[in-house]
Each structure stands twice: as C-alpha cells, then as structure tokens.
Write a protein that binds this DNA or RNA. Sequence first.
DNA 1: TATATTTGTGTGTACGCACACGAAAAACAC
DNA 2: GTGTTTTTCGTGTGCGTACACACAAATATA
Lengths: 362, 362
Amino acid sequence: MITIKDIAKEANVSEGTVDRVIHNRSGVSKKTEAKVKKVLERHNFKVNPVASALAMKKKHQISVLIPEHNDSDLFWKSPYLGVLKAAEDVKNFGVQVNSFTFNQSDAKSYLSAFKDLLDTEPTAVIMVPNFSDETKQIINQLEVLNIPYLFLNIDIEGFSNMAYVGQDSYTAGYIAGKLMHFNNVQPCEFLIIQSSQNSTKNNAISNRVKGFQDYFLKNEINSTPQTLKIEDIHNVLEAKEIINSYLQTRPEVKGVFVPSSRIYKVVDCIENNRLKHLELIGFDNTPQNTACLLNDSVSFLISQKPFDQGYKSVRLLTDFLIQNKVPEHKIYLPIDILIKENVEYNGRDEFVSEYNNTVKEG
Amino acid sequence: MITIKDIAKEANVSEGTVDRVIHNRSGVSKKTEAKVKKVLERHNFKVNPVASALAMKKKHQISVLIPEHNDSDLFWKSPYLGVLKAAEDVKNFGVQVNSFTFNQSDAKSYLSAFKDLLDTEPTAVIMVPNFSDETKQIINQLEVLNIPYLFLNIDIEGFSNMAYVGQDSYTAGYIAGKLMHFNNVQPCEFLIIQSSQNSTKNNAISNRVKGFQDYFLKNEINSTPQTLKIEDIHNVLEAKEIINSYLQTRPEVKGVFVPSSRIYKVVDCIENNRLKHLELIGFDNTPQNTACLLNDSVSFLISQKPFDQGYKSVRLLTDFLIQNKVPEHKIYLPIDILIKENVEYNGRDEFVSEYNNTVKEG
DNA sequence: TATATTTGTGTGTACGCACACGAAAAACAC
DNA sequence: GTGTTTTTCGTGTGCGTACACACAAATATA
C-alpha cells in the first residue's frame, strides 16, 4: 500500500505538500503541483479513508428532516432506523447525524423543525419535502447558506437537490396494476382507495395511482379503476360506511388498491365476508401491513425499502462530504414485491452493517 | 467520544493495561482486570474500529473458494463481484481477500483450487461446498488447521461451518409454485425441467424443487408437477428434441419451472408458437435471464441476490475477525420476485459502498 | 539596499488504538 | 536477607492522514 510519505519521497517534496495537492488546497506552485500530481497518478494513489477519518475527527454534520412516526403510522420509523444505523456506521468517520421530525399534517411543525435543524449548523441536509410552499422557503435558506441537500422518499422537481433517494413511484404503481390483473383476468372492476389528505400533496402517492391506472390503459384492459376518496381514514366508522356502501353497490369490484401504507386500515374497514372475495394490494411492510399479508387479507405489498432509503441517504452524503464523490441524481431503490411467503426475509434491517464497535470478548 | 486513554485515567492504570483487558490478552491480574472492566462497562466503551484498523494493518486473510463463471454461466459472476466489492471496502481495515475458482463439473479442480487457497494461509475461508465427498476432505483440513469457514450459497448439514449465507431454497421454490399457480387456476399441468448434473449434487436446486412441489401438495391443487430431466442442457439440439416432444404429447402443460439459473437455455429450446402459451419461471437475474423477462418469454425470476451473498459473507467474516462478532448461523437473504417491470431496479450492485478511496478533486 | 509582504514548502503534533519492550512489583528459592 | 524467576504493568512508537505553525525564498515597497 502506497502512502503519502512514499509519494512525497518520490516527488522530492514534503508530505505536507502532497497533502495540499491532494486536497487542492492553496499554497503550492503550479510547477510542484504538476510534479506531485504526476506521481500521484502514476501510482494511482488513493487516500486511506481510515487514516483520513481518524485525522479529521468530527468535521461534518448531516441533519435530517423527516416525518415523525407513531403507532398508527409506523412507516416513517424505518427510514429513521436506517438513518440511525448509518449514523452509527459513519460516526467514526467524523460525521455526526442529527434527526428532526415533523408532523406530516402540520406545515408549521415542518418549518419549526427546520429552524431547529439549522441551529446544528449542518454541512449537508437530508429532507423529505412534504409541503411544497414551505419547502420552497426551506430550500431558499439552504441555498443562501450554500448547504447541499438531498430529497428522501418524495421527489419534487424544480429544485437543485443533489439527489433523490427513493422509489420510482410510477413504476411501483404500474406493477401493482399488473399484479392486480394477474388473478383477475375476467372482466371486473378495481377500486383505488385514497385518503384525501395524501392525494393533494403527496407526489409519490399520486404517481403510484397514475402508474396503476396506466397499466390498465396501456394494456388495453377494458376496466378503468375507480377512485374512492376518504376524508379521514383514521375515522374508522365513517370510512367503514363509505367503503362498504360503495362495495355494496359495485359487486363487480374484485380488487382494491391502496396507494399508501395504510392498507391495514382499509382491511379493518371492509366486512369479513366481503374481504374474502377481494384482492388487496398496498404499500410498505409495516408490522400492521405484514400481519395482513400473513392472515391472507392482503395479497401483495410493494415495499419501497424505507430502511434502505434512510441508510443510503446518509451513506451517500457521507461519501460526498468526505470524498467529494458526487452521487447520481436519481437513486431508485428496488421495487420489492412482497407476499405472505417472502415477507419474513425482507426488511432484515441489520443487513450490511458497519463495524459497530463492540468490545471484543475472548 | 470516550477513548482508551480516558478509561485508563479513570481506572488508574495505563493505556496498555486497558488495551490488554479489552482484548482479553494475558498479563493482567484478576483484580485490575475487574477494575478496568467495570469502568469499561460503566462507560459502555466500544473500540473505535477506525483507529483500531489503522493500528493493526493487514493481519487477516479471507480466502474465497467459488465456482468460476463464463459467458454461458454468468451466475457466479455476481457473488464474485460482491466479494470484490467487499474486499475493497474492508481493505483499509487490514483484511485482504483472495479468490480461488473451480470448475463446477470437475471435482479435481475443486481440490486443487483449495490447495492453492491454503497457500495463502487464510485466517478464515468462504466456500461454496459443491461436491460432498471432496468437501469433507477440505473441511477436515480446515478443522485441523483451526480455520473458521462459512458456506456460501449452498447449504450442507453436518459440518460446523460458522454460518450459511444464501437463500432459503425451499421457500423460494414454494413461492415459485404460488406464482405459477396465479395465472393458471384452471386445471392444468406444470413441468419442472432439470439438468441431470445439477439434480444429483446440488442441494439448493433439489430444495427448490421440493418447495415447488409442496406448494401444490399443501394447497391441495390436483395437479402434480412432472419432472423432465435433461442430460446436458448445453447440447441445444438434444434438449430441444426432448423438451418439444414432451410438450407435444402434453398440451395441458401450461407452465414450466426451471429451478436453476439456466432458464434462458430452456427458452432457446422451446418453439416460439408454443412459448407464447406457456408461463415460465426461473431463477436469478443474469443478463440472459433478464433479457427473457424483458421480451416476455419468462414471467418471473426469483433472485437470490448473489451479489449480496458474496458481499455479505466477506463483511460478516470481517466483523468476526476484527471484532469477534459471531454471526447468526443461517443468514437468509431476501427472496426477490422479479418481473419485467422491476428487474431494472434490482441488482444495483453499487449499493452500500464503503469509502472506496478516490483522490479528492476540488 | 534595507525592510515588509507574500508565497511556497517543511516540520511537528494529534487522531485512537495495538503491540513490543522493558521496568517495576510480586512471588519464590535458598 | 539476597538472588532469581515470574507476573504485572507502564512507556513509547507506529499506523496514514490533516492541519497548524514555522520558516525560507521570492517578490514587492520604501
């Protein structure tokens, strides 16, 4: 393994000079810079990130702005855990990660969480751009401060985010359509159940719906999915009434698509004898949804690998910060098709761990 | 961040002593050991793996024994690439990885590759236990030398391998059965096409077949899949003859299951007009197989994430070597269901990279 | 020409840990 | 009690890099 010292010796300069060249720091004459660079290239020199990290020591702050999670909405727990895991992994590389959460239905909390976030003086930011107007304000500030930022899970155009990490929502919806059609080839109807809140602001969800519908259009299936909007899915009584009365009037509905992580709520709402004859497809392997797979009330879940989204975001940014490695602009994670039988093998959140520092035992 | 120095100060001993305690090295009296351990625990001290790696410097050799790959059998390229990637990632942690390959249909090459492998004086071994008798010999030597070993991709019982990293083949086959049944509910027949070579020795493949058959048994579907064995799948003419004449006599066959990564070969063999009316399910997203998905000749591929298998094996062993972290005995990777639409999002082999040492550019 | 200023380069130290070496302390022999 | 061995422990150095600081050379200012 070739070291800076070796390079220095061969180029007849000091280690400090080599270091300066490597980091494009000032204070080196053009002539020696060229000389050193040549030696560097000849040996294909790469800095040893381990030694580098050790020498740098806590220089970077990555601050994360994501929705909070609670018992009824566990989805956001996964990206959070992914972030935590990555934080542990990069800790010893001199990167500190701080998380800030906001209430997804409260734009003010979004702004105030961001305000707290700014106090950490972040080197870079990972955020879920949840409200479009407020996001504009936030991005504005970030750009003034020249802080790079990355979008997680929700993709919005029109900003110069360094990257987007998440799923290709349109294709995910399209796949849901295909899966829905699998078991139900005879002419029949499909229903999309959406929460009104989500539909207005969440890009990801509307893309899923578009993909779902496009499957039927592009494959010339004479069955256009209908949409049923529910004001507040957490109001079980009301939702129950709406859903069941709809299904009552439309017995030809054979499948229900829920483009959010709340399919378990829909399952709760549908009467049992009806449920048996319906195919349900939803998103995300939260514990509640997974339970629905296992008890056969849901046929498919599409996972967007939320844990990996969180994990990967942090790792990408770290690579950027300590190595100037520029990530691709769109990082699409796999579109996992989950069924009863393979769900237990997914979401093994411990996969690919860094050396998380346990005291050795003999 | 608490350091060894801090611990030493608090325990009124030297850093060297703390180091000895941490690594269970000899030369510490019971009394001081207890004292230091208490302080260690109170602060929940973890060694900084970055500094640790820097100080150790190239102490471990992980040697890998896997089948070779070529243009017609690309499957083993993926684990190899995963190993390479991991090798890069752990290089700076003082771990060197060497790969040795053998011809899957030549037991002698297996032994001779192992002999070469031994010359590297490995600290630990990752191997694909391909031939059972020869594997016994190999394991024997490893155990005499007290070298820990890990099974990759193929799981054999009766050895004290530290872990198995791969897929739950039985469940993967079971899932294939379910998927096969999806589109074909009306009474119909299914065919399993196997290569005779594989069937006799490859545990993974026979488990897939068992799982596939069990799906039909357990769900009381009155259709037992038939098996067709092909002597040599690479002899296209012969295989063509066998397969097509079988399908000729059995028009009620609606689906074909190929429990290996060679489904593209089977596609080559089946006449086009017949192909259109068959549902094919196979394993592994090799380039050739992926092409079959994309041109609609194959409906599903089940991926066993071979890249991840290789990657993860190395990382697990590294964790064990430099941190004494004992892995779980069975590491099952996700069972990915691939279709035309999501295949491009899988197997993004660059996922979760370590800092692979690029010279920074300003 | 003498002095101030800028630029270019070398030196030293710290990062946290592993381990070799040798000193001190304890244990044992006589 | 001294001499010897064994056990126990502290010190010092190195891993490869980052960066502050010091200093020399080159250039500018008076």
